[in-house]
Design a protein around this nucleic acid. Structure first.
Lengths: 233, 233
DNA sequence: GGGATGCTACGGCGCCGGTCGAAGCATGAC
DNA sequence: GTCATGCTTCGACCGGCGCCGTAGCATCCC
């Protein structure tokens, strides 16, 4: 077959626990240094260096040098989507397993709200998508989605600049959440909405994790715009 | 992190060349026996048996016994989509590599038209999607897609029964083609269209490969309905 | 029944690759 | 200049896993 070799090679790269941890850490779209990634994966810098070189060589990561630091990030959205789809399958088989692994408070924050490459994921993100769908502002299915005229007006009134897609239609790609197992907003609309929430000060990244917190101003806005309150979660 | 362990485990399973070959072979959605898969992967039946047991255990494959045969197939569409997304990334890095691996006639047939789990892929499939988009019968983007009113009428006139999605909208998920690097029709519409072409005798599966050929009747229909001719490829 | 076929369980061999220690280069701080 | 920091390269160790041979179990044919 044409691409079986490269196919298995890519998967094998992701298959190593240390590399998988680093890739998962980069899934929020930010760029991290080799040292940070090494510490996160629990390996020495020299080992991480070899891993990062292979990942970059394979086209999964992109690297840019800045002074004596070298920042590594995911090479493309296609890579992020691949990682997400693997996580979705992995989460599915966890659900089959009888043992539900103990989840600490850090995981709780991650499950509530987090960044997913360039958009929002977690309970809040799923709830947002649900509200929009219930109001007929978007239409979602496992296979695709669309923004309705009502939705277009809603976002315009909110002050969110909506990029146009070919054909005059805005696109929202559903992204299967590994914790919720429900689709949420990705695509151009998901990216725009995520950026808007951060710019407006509604949400803030937490430390060096993928977790995101909603600010008091954010809860006010979510309540007003989406009828969502903290006690809903 | 919650799912890093299982995440790497899934990828490691796909990372082995023998298992990757078997999974790629099952990507057309059919169920094959352990012996067939062993022969395709170039390993002995006992080795294949161990591989298949692990893949089934992990929830990637489903197995059903029928007499003294045991048929293995992909466990879900989520698994198929995961494999496709990995192939898309793998194909992308091949394009970066300067060496274009030699492709035989079998690969040529695969590139022209093949099945992709439950829908069509390859040059013909991409051309079909292009025609529909150019006529305004569907709207495609890397993130999602939708069937327009014009498209709904077109398929109804053709005699294709269209399943309804929630919200009254039909969904066509774009699926990035590993050979063409362009989106083609997946989702409910893609599945329905693939089944329709096979039922009408427009296309036929070739042997035990994923390749699909267009019958003379099929070329006639493709010319009439989509203005596509064999010399277009 | 006897024999053939499809598949699986067990044991041992061999090797790929992940790991770290030590050393070598860069870049920046002073 | 001298030193410190961040990262990479090299060499060697070794654990894990893919592989097959042999044997055992289930199913079908005659």
């Amino acid at each position: 077959m044409l691409s079986t070799a490269g196919f298995a090679g890519i998967a094998a790269l992701i298959g190593d626990p240390a590399r998988a941890t680093m890739l998962a850490l980069l899934l929020d779209g930010r760029a991290l240094t080799a040292s940070e990634l090494a510490a996160a994966a629990g390996i020495t810098p020299q080992t991480a260096s070899a891993h990062l070189a292979r990942l970059t060589e394979a086209g999964l990561l992109a690297m840019e040098r800045q002074g004596r630091h070298r920042y590594h990030r995911l090479a493309s959205a296609a890579v992020a989507q691949m990682l997400e789809s693997i996580m979705a399958v992995a989460a599915g088989q966890v659900a089959v397993a009888p043992v539900r692994p103990r989840t600490g408070p850090r995981d709780a924050a991650m499950r509530l709200l987090r960044s997913c490459y360039d958009h929002l994921a977690g309970q809040v993100a799923v709830a947002l998508a649900d509200r929009l769908a219930a109001r007929g502002q978007i239409e979602l299915s496992p296979d695709g989605g669309a923004l309705t005229e009502a939705g277009r007006g809603f976002f315009a009134e909110m002050g969110l600049a909506l990029p146009e897609a070919r054909g005059g239609r805005l696109i929202c790609r559903p992204c299967l959440d590994w914790s919720e197992r429900r689709p949420h907003l990705a695509g151009r609309l998901g990216t725009a909405l995520c950026g808007f929430c951060l710019e407006q000060g509604w949400m803030r990244r937490v430390g060096d994790s993928r977790a995101i917190t909603v600010t008091p101003l954010g809860w006010q806005a979510l309540h007003q715009r989406f009828a969502l309150s903290p006690q809903d979660f």
